[in-house]
Design a protein around this nucleic acid. Structure first.
Lengths: 189, 189
DNA sequence: CCCGACTTGTTAGTGACTACCAGTGCGATA
DNA sequence: TATCGCACTGGTAGTCACTAACAAGTCGGG
């Protein structure tokens, strides 16, 4: 609820133009309460806890396929789940994250946590360090491609289908091996 | 020179344990001067301007090859150039960047600039938005894989060959199409 | 009725960062 | 030589994110 007020104010006055005190006042609480629930101002926008969701999807993929394929399909599926509900709030947060340097940086850093969740979700094969390294490389590359899709999605104001965009980004990076699911040719041009 | 003092102090007392005033005092200048040369404290560690270098290498690759191959070989080449000189300072800065959350975030954000440099370096093919999107996806994925290699390199205290590590990360992410150059099997286990 | 856990609020800091203003060499011009 | 910019440096005061320490309320269980 505090977060809702925060995002609203950030959109209205800009991130840097809004102080934590403003957010606290708008939410009707003291600044300390805000800091207690959101350790940093950035956390008022960045509360991604879909790591477990992605890890679960990863674990559900057949282990025989190549890494980027398993990770990619899990990401596309997760995106489909997340965009099923409230596009609006997600888009507003994403736009803030992209336009504000501090938020953009922290968001990318969060990929690190997500990357570890993915590697863990891959399971058994994280035994020896060399295999773990390969998993990390594949996961980080997939996440980066997904992030490119997110930026594009925000630039299109969420009009295009996000899972489709992610699939396209993955295809562009890793070749057309990734399962793009059902994507008829769009007319984005 | 201010930067050298800063990195030294950061390594000695930790990033958060060192104030900008400490750096200024150690360098024999006023805090204001430090802020003038390095707009933020993070910039005391993060002064990467090898974007042009990478872009130049990109432009020098044959245009017929797939994107990730062109970008990958350019990154490997650039890494070879950069590690040819002073490993020590580079490694110290990298270790700071990885261990300090604020620096890690900013460093990842800098990849954004580098990504644009890569896309620009690819040249003509950035004409229509769909092609540009594919280039961005490929570039971001390659940079993420490289970053994974950088982390591993720092973890190994720079004992392994960085270009080799990057090539391995790229191979793990994109398959073995990328030119790994000369990498005999190591015994990292 | 009391006691302990949880949440919230207040106060006084630290430290990064930003105006605004002032002094200092230094080359170019008259 | 005197004067005019011009780049660099320094001081002062302030904003704001964030922290530590302590007070106070709420609430369920003995």
């Amino acid at each position: 609820m505090i977060q809702a007020h925060a995002v609203r104010l950030f959109v209205e006055r800009g991130y840097d133009g809004t102080t934590v005190n403003d957010v606290a006042e708008a939410a009707g609480v003291s600044p300390m309460t805000v800091y207690r629930h959101f350790p940093t101002k950035e956390d008022l926008v960045l509360v991604d806890q879909n790591g477990p969701l992605v890890a679960e999807r990863i674990a559900a993929t057949p282990a025989g396929q190549p890494l980027v394929r398993r990770i990619g399909s899990a990401l596309v599926d997760s995106a489909r789940t997340l965009t099923a509900g409230d596009d609006r709030f997600l888009l507003a947060r994403l736009r803030l994250m992209i336009s504000t340097p501090a938020l953009r940086a922290r968001h990318l850093d969060n990929h690190y946590v997500l990357q570890q969740a993915i590697v863990d979700g891959l399971g058994d094969e994280a035994a020896d360090p060399d295999t773990a390294f390969q998993a990390e490389a594949a996961a980080s590359a997939c996440l980066a491609a997904m992030h490119t899709a997110l930026v594009r999605w925000a630039k299109d104001d969420g009009r295009t289908d996000l899972p489709d965009l992610i699939a396209k980004a993955l295809a562009a990076a890793f070749g057309d091996n990734t399962p793009t699911g059902d994507h008829a040719e769009r007319s984005a041009t």
